[in-house]
């Protein structure tokens, strides 16, 4: 029982990271119907920026955290305003490829700016552990879960109560209608990119104490992509549940099935879910109108 609880703790922590990245995917997809394959790269950039603030400029963890999120949000806003806005209305897969190309550039740029050596990410709580009823919980894991919960609450409140949040919801539900109602759709899209970039930065900084910071971090995006689809691409609660589910499934299958099944359990589950419920767990059923 202790063992299962321990697995759940591990799964929850990794799952939360998948959730956060998936959230970034979904926010952008919901609003603009673009699939942003560079989400993992934004996460990597966020972690690198935070590393610079902490190691080079000597700022404190918390200040670096906030600044890195702001920098990444601004960067993503600019990215949409300068690059992605130009391809609105172009074939969907061209846009996907565009984000893949951007991913290439981000990774190359990160190597040029920060070099090829991996960085150790210092966090104030990186080596702490607590033991609750025999289950070991590292403080990094706690920080990830708490960070995810806080971020999601903020986002939920923002979308629910602020005028801007409601405008964003409107724009993602029906662009044209929102536009006629006076919502500046283009700027809203850029703002959604900004939120998504900020979320990626949060995910990157939260997971950085667990891994080294280098450009292989961007590979996390792939598994999170599976999480987003599992939950139903385009559903925010879906992304969160999907991420945590994948984190858990990985841990449990790794412990109780044949060795190596941890790596493909996520994808096998995904295939199964797609066969049984093609629109994902939380996706809306919809048939394209003609």
């Amino acid at each position: 029982m202790t063992e299962l609880s321990q697995l759940i703790v591990y799964g929850l922590a990794t799952g939360c990271i998948y959730s956060l990245i998936a959230l970034g995917f979904v926010l952008i997809y919901k609003a603009t119907e673009m699939v942003n394959f560079a989400q993992g790269d934004l996460l990597m950039l966020g972690a690198f920026v935070a590393v610079t603030f902490i190691l080079t400029l000597g700022l404190s963890y918390w200040l670096a955290f906030i600044l890195a999120v702001i920098v990444m949000a601004a960067f993503s806003y600019g990215l949409d305003a300068v690059v992605l806005r130009r391809v609105i209305g172009q074939p969907q897969f061209s846009v996907v490829m565009l984000t893949i190309g951007l991913g290439f550039i981000f990774r190359a740029g990160a190597t040029m700016i920060w070099g090829t050596e991996p960085y150790n990410f210092p966090a104030p709580f990186s080596s702490g552990v607590s033991v609750v009823g025999g289950v070991v919980i590292s403080h990094v894991a706690i920080s990830i879960v708490v960070g995810t919960v806080v971020l999601c609450s903020i986002l939920w409140a923002f979308f629910r109560f602020s005028k801007l949040g409601v405008a964003m919801q409107a724009a993602s539900q029906n662009q044209l209608a929102a536009y006629y109602m006076g919502v500046p759709v283009k700027r809203i899209f850029s703002l959604i990119w900004a939120i998504s970039g900020g979320v990626a930065a949060v995910a990157g900084i939260l997971i950085a104490p667990l891994t080294l910071v280098d450009n292989t971090m961007s590979m996390l995006g792939l598994k999170a992509f599976a999480a987003a689809v599992l939950g139903g691409f385009g559903s925010i609660p879906g992304a969160l549940v999907g991420g945590i589910l994948i984190g858990m499934i990985e841990q449990v299958s790794g412990a109780y099935f044949i060795d190596g099944s941890k790596d493909i359990a996520a994808y096998a589950t995904l295939l199964l879910v797609l066969l049984l419920r093609p629109q994902g767990l939380f996706g809306a059923v919809g048939r394209k109108k003609v």
């Binding site: 846009v95 565009l98 550039i105 040029m112």
Partner: peptide
């Protein structure tokens, strides 16, 4: 010998190609 120069140029050409000619 700048690290990352090859994928960087490749990515840049890819992005420019799609930006200026989304139809390929």
């Amino acid at each position: 010998r700048q690290p990352g120069i090859e994928p960087g140029i490749f990515g840049l050409l890819l992005v420019l190609t799609i930006l200026f000619e989304p139809r390929g």
